[in-house]
């Protein structure tokens, strides 16, 4: 019965990873990725690996979204400038 929580965490990881791959728009993908990070941290915790879970939380909850969103923003602005020149 104690394995139930492991099964739940594994299913959540599989589902959110699939959604992250299936989402096309990078901004929405970043949102799914943030949720995936939290779910992965839960999986690591129930597998008794809190150190890895802590790494995942530290990187996945704020740092990865910030890097991704900054990159998306730069690319969009460049696109807008190109359009302005035309």
């Amino acid at each position: 019965m104690a394995d139930a929580v492991i099964v739940v965490a594994l299913l959540l990881v599989a589902a959110s990873a699939t959604v992250a791959v299936a989402t096309r728009d990078p901004m929405r993908q970043a949102l799914v990725l943030a949720v995936l990070g939290v779910v992965l941290a839960v999986l690591f915790t129930v597998l008794q690996a809190p150190d890895v879970g802590l790494s995942q939380l530290a990187v996945g909850s704020a740092l990865t979204p910030l890097l991704l969103m900054l990159a998306v923003r730069k690319i969009r602005r460049r696109g807008r400038e190109k359009e302005g020149e035309r």
Binding site: D51, L54, L57, A58, A62, L63, L66
Partner: peptide
């Protein structure tokens, strides 16, 4: 649980 990597990322964030 924790260590240099985790703490460093938290502080930088």
């Amino acid at each position: 649980p924790g260590g240099g990597f985790q703490g460093g990322v938290v502080a930088a964030t």
